[in-house]
Each structure stands twice: as structure tokens, then as C-alpha cells.
Amino acid sequence: MSDAKVEEMSFEQAMGELEQVVSQLERGDVPLEQSITLYEHGAKLKKHCEAKLKEAEEKVAAITFDGDGAPKGTTPVEGL
């Protein structure tokens, strides 16, 4: 597990670490207590990835287009 705080990770960092957690849990060779810790960490990573994706979706949805279909700017999304 990375020493970086989950909330400070980029989407890519969190996703990579989540993949490592899942891999370790799927192997089944981790002691029970460590499995619980890994599962909790994985849940935090999943939540963080979902939040980052939602943020990106909102930014994309806020892009406005001109009559030719070309982006002409963005409309600020509340809270971003």
C-alpha cells in the first residue's frame, strides 16, 4: 500500500493501487487481519475513484458547443 493519502492521489494512482489491493485479496494468501485492512483501504480507493470520475463527468457535461459543434468554452459547474 502506498504511503500517500488516498484523497491526495490522482485517479490513475488510486486505480493502480486499487488493482494491487484486489490482486492481493484474490490470491487469498493474506492473513485475515491484513485482508480486513486491505479491504478497508480498497473501499476508500474505490470511493475516491468514483468521486474523481464524477468530477470529470461534470466538467465534460459543462462544455458548451457553438453552432458548428465546436467547443466554445465551459460553463462552471457549482462546487468545482
Rank of each mutant, 00 (worst) to 15 (best):
V30A: 07
P31H: 07
G42D: 08
K46P: 00
L38K: 04
D29F: 08
D29C: 08
K47N: 14
G42Y: 06
K46Y: 06
L38Y: 08
E55C: 04
P31F: 06
A56M: 13
R27Q: 14
D29R: 03
E57S: 13
A56R: 11
A56K: 10
S35Y: 02
H48T: 03
L38H: 06
K47Y: 07
E50N: 10
C49I: 12
D29A: 10
Y39P: 00
R27A: 15
R27E: 15
A56V: 06
E40G: 00
E57W: 08
K54T: 09
Q34R: 13
K47Q: 15
L45G: 02
E57M: 11
K54I: 10
A51M: 02
K52A: 13
K47L: 14
A51K: 02
P31Y: 05
E33R: 09
S35L: 04
G28H: 10
K52R: 11
L53E: 14
H41V: 01
V30C: 11
K47G: 04
Q34V: 14
E55P: 00
A51N: 04
K52Q: 12
A56T: 05
H41W: 07
A43P: 00
E50D: 14
T37R: 01
K44N: 09
L32T: 14
Y39T: 15
T37Q: 09
L53T: 09
E55W: 07
K47F: 08
T37D: 06
P31W: 06
H48S: 03
G28Y: 09
A56H: 07
E33N: 08
K47H: 10
E50K: 08
E55G: 05
L32H: 09
R27G: 06
E57V: 08
A51D: 10
Y39L: 15
L53Q: 10
L38T: 11
E55M: 10
D29L: 12
D29Y: 05
E57T: 11
E40A: 11
A56Q: 11
E33D: 13
